[in-house]
Structures are given as C-alpha cells and as structure tokens.
Design a protein around this nucleic acid. Structure first.
Lengths: 107, 107
DNA sequence: TTGACATGCAACCAAATAGTTGCCTATAAG
DNA sequence: CTTATAGGCAACTATTTGGTTGCATGTCAA
C-alpha cells in the first residue's frame, strides 16, 4: 500500500469532493459524479483514475456504466500509521489546555 | 483554518519527512533539518514555508538561528473533520460493494 | 441496424511545483 | 573590524498537474 499515492490523491480539493460525493451516495456512475461539477467528464475521469490508483476508489463495470465505490482502507491506514502518531502528542497538550480553560475540571 | 493547505502540504514526501524529523526532535534549526537530506538548503526552506503556511510548523527566531516546532492541531483537525467520517463508513461501504460483486446479496 | 448514451484514449496547453544557482543580509566569534 | 556561520531573496528551469478538445469504442434500445 503506497502512502504517497494516497496523500497525493487527497491533496486535490476536487478529488476530496468526489470522495465526499461517494460518501453521500456510494456506487455512482461517472456520469452521476460529473453532474453539477465545473469540469469536463474527462477531467473527472482523470481524478477518478488517481483515486483508483491510490486505492481510495474501486470500480465495477456494469454494462456500459462504471460504478465507483469508496474504499476507506487506505484512509484508515494513513490514519493509523501517520495521523495518530501526531495526535497522541496533541492529546496531552489538549487535556492540559482544557484543564487551564476549565479552571481544573476532571474527566 | 485551511484544510486545503494542510492536505497540499502533506502531499509531498519530503515535507512529511521533515515533520517526521521534527516529531523525533522538536525545535530544530534549518541547518539541522537539512543534514542528511538530498536537497539544497533553499529547497528545504521552501518546504518549511509551505508547512508554516499550512500551520503545521511554527517558527521562532533565536539570534541568527530559526527554530522549527511541529504543530499537530491542523492534523488533528482534518483527522476529526475528515478522516473519522470515512472510517465510520467503512463497514457499510464494504457491504455495499459486496452486494454488487455478489450479484445481489441479502441484507 | 441505427442511433443515442456512457465511457475510453490521446494530444495538447497553461499553471503550479520542486528544485537549482547566485547573491544578499544578519549575527556571532576571533 | 573581519570572517565564518545561519539564513533570506530572487531568477530561472524542468517536470508534474489539472484541465481542455476531438475522436473512438462499447452497449443498450427502438
């Protein structure tokens, strides 16, 4: 699994938007994903290819349509291997901050 | 807080490496961060500027040296607002894909 | 079979990106 | 003051990226 491809894929707002749309409704066709976007179909295709190569989207042909499904595994992967590491440090910082803000406050 | 800047900043392997190094040892100078990298100092500077603009690194001048500190808040932010959302979705997405792959599938 | 619809492929283009080199400024030390 | 050190700035370059247009292919429906 290639972390770099995932990070690069997530770097573009259009691609994150596509993931958002698939999150709203999974299994959409290319045509459906294009609707309402300020982009040509071909541009959307390119974005989807990048998402596929990063394994963030998997595809299933059905007749002349191509259905797109979100795959959360790589996101989970970088979350576990990368993000949590930095969060761990913050948790202590956050709880310290909370303590100050709340005067003391347990929990 | 600009999510896009954070995602873009994280998209480059060299910048993630710089964050890793700051994670190992916080508060390093530019010179220290350059050591052992296959890059000129100026290239590193550019990466650090991008990390600063994404608020992932904060800087403190000390005499003629510039100390760099990691700031985990933006990472936490995208983790909470973005990553967790997809992690939650994982089970239902997988089962939806299965349905299609298996031709019908109950549930 | 004919036409309409859904997608694929390739060439091209402009802008952004990652990197370089060369020179300048500021601070510390001899 | 002079010199070495730490970093800043700007111009330039090659490559990547995000997007376009034009045409081709494959599939469904009449």
């Amino acid at each position: 699994m290639n972390d770099d491809a995932v990070f690069r894929a997530l770097a573009d707002a259009s691609r994150r938007q596509l993931l958002d749309r698939l999150y709203e409704q999974n299994g959409q066709t290319l045509g459906e994903l294009c609707q309402g976007l300020e982009m040509t179909r071909q541009a959307v295709t390119k974005h989807l290819v990048i998402l596929e190569e990063a394994n963030l989207v998997s595809v299933q042909r059905q007749g002349r349509e191509k259905l797109h499904f979100i795959n959360p595994v790589p996101i989970n992967h970088i979350a576990e291997r990368w993000i949590n590491k930095f969060e761990r440090r913050q948790l202590s910082a956050l709880s310290a901050l909370k303590k100050v803000l709340e005067g003391d406050g347990g929990q």
